[in-house]
């Protein structure tokens, strides 16, 4: 076993070293390759996007004819904001409420809810879109509300999962301290548990928002899109940044593709900003400090 005792062991030792070094090199190359890939995607979108991204892009709607140059995605940016806003208003109370029921009360059906949440996370968003089409669009037509509903369904299970994890991190001591003072269960949750978990909860919501901002497929089946003008009425069909990128990217006109690249860069920037804020908020968490 000992390598220094005989010359005969040297061959074995060097073979082991070669294998080990080969591993080091392989893993380093794989890691570097992955980072290069990230750089390739971000860099490509950055370079192409910056060619057109500017004040006009952020303040104009697209030209009536997709082949024309100029114009921007303002209506999509507004549409995305409205629909993600609707989705957040739906998903946050349901998501956090479910997490509270599952984690704090552990009442009947809590196990089922937890399991189905995991199942929901894995459901393709296109199926979610088809579902909202069936329950909403069939009756009320394509609309921003339908889009918001679909995005809300995408966000809810994500929020349940992160919220549940964050509530679990709140120490039982704090709940006991509050209950022992003669504070009811609901007050304890609202005034002690939720504030303690708040930064973690916000992180979860931000990540879900970032995810919803980028969704395209379910919106094609629910909000449909509207390239003509700024629509702020959520009962009407509505565009989103992602829908406009998709629509302009597949036209084949260089002018439209230029807009789509600028849109892609804007979308990535928004998503990354939300992701970054989420990480920063998550870091200065009251839980992490304990």
């Amino acid at each position: 076993m000992s390598e220094s005792t005989g010359l005969g062991a040297v061959g074995l030792l060097s073979r082991r070293r070669v294998v080990d070094q080969a591993l080091t090199v392989t893993l380093s190359v794989v890691m570097a390759g992955t980072l290069a890939l990230l750089l390739w995607v971000l860099g490509y979108v950055g370079v192409e996007g910056l060619k057109y991204l500017g004040p006009e892009f952020l303040t104009q709607t697209p030209p009536g004819n997709a082949a024309d140059a100029g114009g921007g995605f303002l209506n999509g940016i507004i549409g995305s904001t409205i629909m993600v806003g609707i989705a957040t208003v739906i998903a946050v109370p349901i998501g956090v409420g479910t997490a509270i029921y599952v984690q704090e009360y552990a009442g009947p059906g809590a196990g089922t809810a937890r399991f189905l949440t995991d199942v929901l996370v894995g459901i393709p968003s296109i199926v979610t879109g088809a579902f909202v089409y069936a329950i909403w669009v069939v009756h009320f037509g394509f609309s921003g509300i339908a889009g918001g509903l679909a995005l809300g369904l995408v966000m809810t299970p994500l929020i349940v999962r992160t919220s549940e994890e964050m509530l679990r991190l709140v120490s039982r001591d704090l709940r006991e301290a509050s209950l022992a003072m003669g504070i009811g269960r609901a007050r304890t949750i609202v005034s002690v548990v939720l504030p303690t978990a708040s930064s973690g909860l916000i992180t979860g919501v931000m990540l879900a928002v970032a995810r919803a901002m980028g969704e395209t497929a379910p919106l094609l089946l629910t909000a449909l899109g509207n390239d003509l003008f700024i629509e702020t009425n959520p009962t009407k069909r509505m565009s989103s940044l992602s829908l406009q990128i998709f629509g302009n990217a597949i036209t084949g006109y260089r002018t439209a593709q230029a807009r789509a690249w600028a849109g892609a860069l804007t979308l990535i920037a928004l998503v990354l900003i939300f992701t970054l804020i989420a990480r920063l908020v998550g870091r200065r968490s009251a839980i992490a400090g304990r």
């Binding site: 120490s171 001591d173 704090l174 006991e176 301290a177 509050s178 209950l179 022992a180 003072m181 003669g182 504070i183 009811g184 005034s191 002690v192 504030p195 303690t196 708040s198 009251a286 839980i287 400090g289 304990r290």
Partner: peptide
């Protein structure tokens, strides 16, 4: 809940509410 209001409790590990100031901790109940 009324019982716990009448009978207070102090725990093994000090557990002040981490999101509250000294004042708010005492006033919380």
């Amino acid at each position: 809940v009324a019982v716990r209001r009448a009978i207070g409790m102090v725990f093994q590990r000090a557990n002040p509410f981490p999101t509250m100031s000294i004042y708010d901790n005492v006033a919380s109940g």
